[in-house]
């Protein structure tokens, strides 16, 4: 039998991670949207909001969720459209490295507040 090897057992976990990270990001977006609607503006107001302990914690969760969510989504797109193994491996690696870098960059922005 000619089976296509695509790996195993990560499907359900990824499906679940995609939902959990989506919910974290949706709640965070609503929170930040509400804060902006409530009149947070200017450098001082924006910085004071983001520097609060709870908000930093929530922002950290958002950044991790975003990068993990993007990893699953973008990897799936490469798997759907890019067939040559070499190019696919290169794109997967590039995506993973970029996302880890983005996470570090964004986290250090809130860390030094």
């Amino acid at each position: 039998m000619n089976r296509i090897v695509t790996g195993a057992h990560y499907g359900l976990k990824d499906w679940l991670v995609q939902r959990i990270t989506a919910i974290v990001m949706a709640l965070y977006s609503l929170f930040i949207g509400a804060a902006l609607l409530a009149g947070v503006s200017g450098y001082d107001g924006w910085r004071a909001l983001m520097a609060q302990g709870f908000v930093r914690f929530f922002t950290f969760l958002f950044i991790v969720s975003l990068c993990w969510h993007a990893w699953i989504g973008v990897r799936d797109i490469w798997m759907d459209y890019v067939k040559p193994a070499g190019i696919r491996l290169a794109l997967h690696s590039l995506t993973a490295v970029a996302l880890v870098g983005y996470a570090g960059w964004a986290i250090q922005v809130i860390w030094r507040l």
């Binding site: 924006w46 910085r47 993007a70 989504g73 973008v74 970029a98 964004a106 507040l113």
Partner: peptide, 26 residues
């Protein structure tokens, strides 16, 4: 959903850069 997702992914450097600048100093 797919197109918007890849667009957001590709523009993440711009968004994080803006986020960085918005918080660092006046």
């Amino acid at each position: 959903h797919r197109v918007s997702g890849i667009g957001l992914f590709l523009m993440l450097p711009l968004l994080i850069w803006l986020f960085d600048k918005s918080l660092s100093t006046p």
